[in-house]
Design a protein around this nucleic acid. Structure first.
Lengths: 397, 397
DNA sequence: CTTGATTGTTGTTCAACACAACAAAGAGGC
DNA sequence: GCCTCTTTGTTGTGTTGAACAACAATCAAG
């Protein structure tokens, strides 16, 4: 039971096409989840009439969202025509801004990357605008018949209402209006969100099966900073102002090894981010040639038995565990998913994280599992296109 | 954008009557919120056609949910017929089980109590079953034509799926199946939830205007224990297992003045509940005639300047503030609402709570306000009927 | 008293699902 | 190989309910 707020009520009123809109979304989700599947089976499972499902599928075929893929086996009657998502033509352009590189990709409905380009990220707004607009228009021109939307993932705070970017701490970049610029340049809809929310959506739609079925979970993205994405009842929890979920700046302990992007030294991020790990490694191993070591390299060293690298990783894991413990207390989600390069060291740090994280799981309440992401190397790229795909498959309320 | 889960999909499919169901709820909510209001004004605000609104209002009149209440002033044309919620006939029976007394009430759509009965709560299940069933059937018999549902608020953990009660710590009462029994005895639908969730719903539907407009807030119910009710996006957040929101058992500090209902001495509840306050008062003022002092009495003493009572209250307020601070960190809600008898001492404790609570409000993030409930003496009674009314006015998703 | 505005109702059209009938296609028994 | 029974997908009819337009009932104001 959800309260009906009278604010912007026109969007909530049911019109003639509301029935079809709802049922079309449901059928599309069936094709996505159970593909290959026949019209008749969708009708059975949804208790819609076969004729209704056929009409909806006709729509979806015309809209190029679904395609027929041969026939299945007979079970004593006419053979079913099987349906699946239309692949190979792009529906989403993803722009993934990370501190080091920016990726611009095109993906189809199933989340397959059809094209991918990248360039080094810069703090020069003019350069960034030019590069992104150029790459995006190249992709658009490559697929003239496609109906596209653009999703942008950024390592900062985004204002979902204005489509503008409020702040990217790493570059101290404020009021970057890339959303508006891209809309003007391309005429396409643009969705901007912070990287952790985007990754949370990616987990929801493309994660392991256990996660996709989960209604309430939290992702912890460990990268340059620490970001958290909260999924409650199958949607991103943004709070009223869109700035909720910034747990990276939760107070954890004094005297962090490095300054947080917000300037303090007591944030979770200052204890558990890649930046914190690398700083701690550098300071504890002397000022030798380690100046420009990156996180993947450090994990490699730890795996090869380098004591210092291992110790630093485990220390960060403990901080991660404490923060996760707070999140579990607050939300008692079904799962907490750790994402980012650090999962490559999962075997080394798993126990430290889980021991501290489980501390707050009371037996009589829920049992939250703490697991590593399976999204691979670039969860934020998948996140940027998930911003678009979540709209294609999700319902309005 | 919310994910569509294919579990129990038949309930989510849109049928013919879905349009009417949605719009009927919206119109009903307009009558509730803007009463007295005319058909034409509802049509203007919702952008539905006047004819459509008329048809829906006809339905609502037949269902006895709405009534006409004379005509309004003309603005240069025919005078509008004004509508309001139908009052005076009961739609909800509320059963409010508290540690000391159990209330059984009948309320109309507007939340007015039409009848109210009570009896002392006991740990004897047989007695409780008998008393509750008797009072409820008396109410039902008093209004033979009414279409009723029953809402039950309990100070414990309820299992919303089975309609049974899992556990009431105060009475160490397990597996009480009052829901099933009442359904069998009366044939009516029964909704059970814990008192904090019920109070949260009461705030959402009957609280001060500022709260009713709020989508995300948390109520902290200070009574025998400490309970929290979380409203996210206008609905109660229960987590996957229905047992979320049990923050009363969050770790706060060692050596609490009293044992928590769960047996520990480090829970929030063991520091900030009425029980904790009274225990601390007794131990610090010697074993004189204070054995059976209750919280209202203690607040009276503090208001009259009794040092010890005031000190004990302020100490509990600080614990409350710390716990609230954790909640704000976790959810960054728009508001935290403190409820229970302790609000009668709000002037005395306000500052202590707010100073500690505000500690965790980061400037750059949301600004949560910590306020006292305005629901009056018995928020849980209103809570029990809110369980029913939230269904009458809420939407299914 | 006339004109124009406002409210509520009535009749028509249109979208979309339910239901039933049917054609297409195939499995299995004899 | 033929007949029967299933299963799938399509087509036509009925029903719900919103949109739209026209109209009657009121009423204010010049």
């Amino acid at each position: 039971m959800k309260k009906i707020y009278l604010h912007r009520i026109e969007d909530q009123i049911a019109r003639h096409n509301t029935i079809r809109d709802i049922n079309k979304q449901i059928v599309l989700n069936y094709v996505r989840a159970r593909s290959p599947i026949s019209r008749a089976e969708i009708a059975r499972e949804t208790s819609l009439q076969r004729s209704t499902v056929s009409a909806i599928v006709d729509d979806l075929l015309v809209e190029n969202l679904v395609e027929e893929t041969g026939t299945g086996d007979s079970t004593g009657g006419r053979k079913p025509t099987l349906l699946r998502l239309k692949t190979g033509i792009p529906v989403a352009i993803g722009v993934d801004v990370t501190p080091r590189e920016t990726f611009v990709v095109a993906a189809d409905l199933a989340g397959n990357l059809l094209r991918s380009e990248k360039f080094p990220t810069s703090s020069d707004i003019v350069y960034m605008n030019k590069q992104i607009t150029a790459k995006v228009t190249t992709l658009i021109d490559a697929y003239p018949s496609a109906k596209l939307e653009i999703g942008i993932s950024i390592p900062g705070i985004a204002d979902p209402s204005s489509g503008g970017i409020l702040y990217i701490p790493y570059f101290q970049l404020a009021d970057w209006d890339i959303g508006k610029r891209l809309t003007e340049a391309t005429g396409l809809d643009v969705i901007i969100d912070n990287d952790a929310n985007a990754v949370a959506l990616a987990e929801l739609w493309f994660g392991q099966e256990e996660v996709r079925k989960t209604r309430n979970f939290i992702t912890v993205l460990v990268a340059e900073g620490v970001g958290t994405g909260i999924i409650i009842d199958g949607q991103v929890y943004r709070g009223e102002n869109g700035a909720a979920g910034e747990f990276g700046h939760m107070f954890l302990a004094e005297n962090a090894p490095v300054e947080c992007s917000c300037g303090r030294r007591d944030c979770w991020e200052a204890h558990a981010s890649e930046k914190a790990i690398l700083a701690q490694y550098r300071s504890s191993s002397g000022n030798s040639a380690n100046g420009s070591i990156d996180i993947e390299h450090l994990i490699g060293l730890a795996k090869n038995g380098e004591d210092n690298a291992l110790r630093v990783l485990k220390s960060a894991a403990k901080s991660l565990g404490i923060g996760i413990s707070n999140l579990i207390i607050g939300f008692s989600p079904q799962a907490v998913i750790v994402s980012g390069s650090i999962v490559k060291a999962w075997d080394l740090i798993k126990e430290d994280i889980q021991i501290l994280g489980q501390r707050s799981i009371r037996q009589e309440l829920s049992n939250t599992s703490i697991i590593a992401s399976t999204l691979g190397d670039q969860p934020t790229v998948l996140g940027s296109i998930s911003l678009v795909l979540a709209r294609k498959f999700g319902s309005a309320n």
